[in-house]
Amino acid sequence: MTTEATEAAMAAGHAAGAAAEKGGMPQLDFSTFPNQIFWLLVTLVVVYLILTKLALPRISSVLAERQGTITNDLAAAEELKLKAQEAEEAYNKALAEARAEAQRIAAETRAAIQADLDKAIAKADDEIAAKTAQAQKAIAEIRAHALESVQEVAKDVAREIVAVLGGKADARSITAAVKAHLKDLKGEGRP
């Protein structure tokens, strides 16, 4: 059997047919080739027709439509983005204006308050000055008065002391002595 097959293998087609009969490679069974080729061509033509008539135009249109939609959506998004930017700018402007207004009002108020305050301070200063002047006058009066009193007391005391010591003091010399002493006291006693 194998010998025959080997010999026949030289004549390709025949041998392959024989090989197929005894369970060889079905791929080399040439008797089925016309059948395979015929049905393959039918299949390919049918697939080609399905693709060109139905599938490919539909898929390409779907893809084009999607592309168009995406482009449109992108454009719309771009527009919306621009609008949003405008709105943001307007908002920022309004905000800046409001801030400036607020600052202006604050400044005005501050100025008004400052003016009132200044007035009040000036008035208070005047009053204080008047009171101080009055007080200084009173103090000067009191001081003058006190000096006079001290002079009187010192004269009296000096006269008494002179009298006790047995001397007779004339008013003029006592006054001069007291004045000289007081002048010394004034010169030294002031810190």
Binding site: N35, F38, W39, T43, V47, I50, R58
Partner: peptide, 28 residues
């Protein structure tokens, strides 16, 4: 097997066509 005989290969070629049809035409 004549050239027109319907074989198991023919059947699976037909199924392939059917699958392509379902995938690309019915699916879309």
């Amino acid at each position: 097997i004549h050239w027109y005989t319907i074989t198991n290969q023919t059947l699976w070629m037909g199924i392939a066509v059917l699958v392509i049809f379902l995938l690309l035409v019915v699916g879309t």
